[in-house]
Simulated scan of single mutants.
Amino acid sequence: MNEFKKLFPNKEAFVIFSLYIILFVFQGVFVTASKTENGGYDYNTTLVVFLSELLKLFISATLYTYKRENKPHLFKAIAINYNLLLLYFIPSLLYCFYNNLAFINLSHYDPTSYYILLQFRVVLTAFLFQFLFSKKLTNMQWVSLCILTLGCMIKNFDAASIQSKGDTDLWSQIFNIYFLSINFQNFCSCLAGTYNEYLLKTKGLNVDIFLQNVFMYLDSVICNFLILFYKGEVNTIFNDMQSLEDIIVILIIVNSAIVGIVTSFFLKNLNSILKTYASALELIITAVVCYILFNILITGFTILSICLVSIAVAMYFKNPVNNNTVNNDKDKKPLLEIVTE
């Protein structure tokens, strides 16, 4: 019980942790359901990402305005905290790189190789976490993270055993010229997440979390628009609005926006290390759900992966990283209202 209290300082933190996993499972299911028979998409994925960022910005601005009470109005608050707005360009730009590199790398890697390489972000996140917060992880925590990484990598061999059927060399697919590209993508993801947590708990400690979300997604919209402009897709992207008639695509956009808001609460009240464990649990749960809904085969690799991830989670829960901020009563009240409504 003491370990649980240390891991989740209050019930709201546990709700956020659970909601984060559930929403990401939904996202995986929605994206899988939106695929065509040949594994592609009949909608503009760039447009979906861009609209999702716009929706996140709208939700954050609305929630700040609704909950601001005696705080300054939105535009005045942005002017007062313009330095923080500029700092949020760092994680926003990194996330922008990550999203665009995902499409590039997926075009050169099969999904199995791609997701195997992405699991190295677990350990990379730990290194960046130590650097930014000047906290040293224990040996037990490092062992747990390594087991978690191995478990996630093994899970992704499911697709290899099904798709390759011995005809292709998985390792030759992994270690090619785009190996550096996917590692840079990993770096962008890890640094964006840990730096976002750093801003929430240091520079923006006394700034309303919804206002910080406005900074994050305003910068993100700007960065994504510049990428679209650079790629010459600004004029053509709006021609693909018809793809939004599909209810699954709408669910992807809405769910992605909610995930973004919940993630900010996760990083504010928990930490990036626990987020990697939540992502691993989401990976396993998604595999089970997709088996039930889409009859996607589960092999021995998944069973072994579940065992390893369970061991890693149990080890971490016994000795979690404590990097939670101490919130005052005013901070706790809106958090409870937003999360549990």
Results as ranks from 00 to 15, higher is better:
Tyr230Leu: 14
Val262Thr: 10
Lys11Met: 04
Phe133Glu: 05
Tyr20Ser: 12
Ser113Pro: 00
Cys223Gln: 13
Thr138Pro: 00
Tyr230Gly: 01
Val214Cys: 10
Leu148Ile: 03
Leu150Ala: 14
Leu281Asp: 08
Leu281Thr: 01
Leu55Asp: 05
Thr112Gln: 13
Glu337Ile: 03
Asn2Glu: 15
Leu199Ile: 10
Gly260Gln: 06
Val31His: 03
Val15Asp: 06
Ile311Cys: 09
Ser144Asn: 03
Ser310Leu: 07
Leu226Met: 08
Val15Gln: 10
Arg121Phe: 06
Tyr115Glu: 13
Ser243Lys: 11
Leu244Asn: 14
Asn213Asp: 03
Val262Ser: 05
Gln242Met: 11
Phe129Ala: 14
Gln119Arg: 15
Asn271Arg: 10
Lys332Glu: 15
Glu12Gln: 12
Phe133Gly: 07
Cys223Asp: 02
Phe129Gln: 13
Leu148Lys: 02
Leu218Met: 15
Ser220Trp: 05
Leu148Asn: 04
Asn38Phe: 04
Lys201Gly: 04
Thr36Pro: 05
Phe133Asn: 09
Phe26Ala: 11
Ile182Thr: 00
Asn156His: 10
Met241Phe: 15
Glu12Asp: 14
Cys152Phe: 02
Val234Leu: 15
Glu3Phe: 11
Lys71Arg: 15
Glu197Thr: 01
Lys332Arg: 14
Trp171Met: 08
Asp158Gln: 11
Asp42His: 14
Gln130Leu: 06
Asn327Ile: 14
Leu281Ser: 04
Phe97Lys: 12
Asn295Glu: 11
